[in-house]
Amino acid sequence: MNRRFFLGLAAAGLAGSSAFVLAGTRPAMAKAVDVNAVLHDPEAPTGGNPKGDVTIVAFFDYNCPYCKTSAADLARVVKEDGKIRLVYKDWPILTEASVQGAQFALAAKYQGKYETAHNALMGISGRRSSGDAMLEAIKASGVDMNRLQADLTSHGQKISALMQRNHAQALGLGMNGTPTYLIGSFRTSTLDYRGFKEAVAEARRRQTAK
């Protein structure tokens, strides 16, 4: 696969998405998606190895059963691999409470506990958690709740803006729902442990082959 071929594909993809926008079916896709903004949004929490050679971008919702089942496998692969950079895209689209959960998790980032809060929320069993249940889970995970409230108040606008950007990027990339994972240059939804490993290996192979 030569580089030119992929550039051509990318152009085709962008042309396709603009045509889609012009057709007016998804007004939110008004802007072309900047790949760099997807991979390197300074506000978006990251995990794994910051210098990893493969980047996984996870679009998820805290009330999404498939997100919860795949989150554990993803975390395991990221940890075992050691060279994966993980970008968290809170994309609360399934329930009203999902938005609250995302706000709590993103606020916890300001005390350095985003992943703690994220894992606590993903670990809640039960199908649709209320905002209260999410708050309980975060509290139990050891996040400082007074600090959380303070950060929600002072950084509320930034948090909202980040979620808006995630939303626009997801729609811009033609995503249908959660979870959606970008693994290198691939896009997938729910995978299991083996699936993630294979996808990472293939993404890595493609990058080095270029």
Binding site: S185, F186, R187, A199
Partner: peptide
């Protein structure tokens, strides 16, 4: 969405 090439 299962594994299509997206960009690049």
């Amino acid at each position: 969405p299962h594994s299509c090439l997206l960009y690049r």
